[in-house]
Amino acid sequence: MAFKAAVITFPGSNCDRDMAVAIEAVSGEPAIRVWHGDAQLPEGLDFIALPGGFSYGDYLRSGAMAAKSPILRAVVAAAERGVPVLGVCNGFQVLTESGLLPGALMRNAGQRFICRTVELEVANTTSLFTNGFESGQSLRIPVAHHDGNYFADDATLDALESEDRVAFRYVQNANGSRRNIAGVLSANGRVLGMMPHPERAIMPAAHASMGGADGRAIFQNVISGLVAAA
């Protein structure tokens, strides 16, 4: 199966190339690059990625403007048809602003931009993105954000937990996220938003303190899950 993925670029996106490189490295197929002003997505997509960065300069709120851009209407429609969507960092912010995922990402509790590799614990092992993992498995993936403090009210958080929709948790909570949440799934498990950057962890780096390949598995899970379903 030819894996047909699209990476959406907004003005101010800066991880779009990394995302496209990661998808190609894992799937062997080049990702289609889509510009925010396009009203339509390519036909027959298997996967859509919303990359990190500072879409529209974070004007108003992080992700708020991108969530109202023409292409996002197409992304929401595709997600509602069941096309898997991954939003990383700013992409996660866009997903919450668009209503595809619950909650909001607020300024880090410590006010500072955080840029380092963090340890995550896998919480959900049944979704398309996480079904290759074991519960409680540890992943090391970089974060780089100022607005990564996940907020939702208690009723929403309780529902997310009871529906097994928390994908990843921080082992050490650096940004103030409620219940240590680092990644959240949609009700059907086919939309994942996460602050850490799996596309920055797809190959072992020359130095042990940098990079790592733990993010690669998330892309592999998606691709092998879609192949199995095809």
Binding site: L60, R61, A64, K68, T96, E97, P102, G103, A104, M106, F151, A152, D153
Partner: peptide, 9 residues
């Protein structure tokens, strides 16, 4: 409701 405020927060 649709843009200027984020009704979640």
């Amino acid at each position: 409701e649709q843009l200027l405020a984020n009704m979640v927060i």
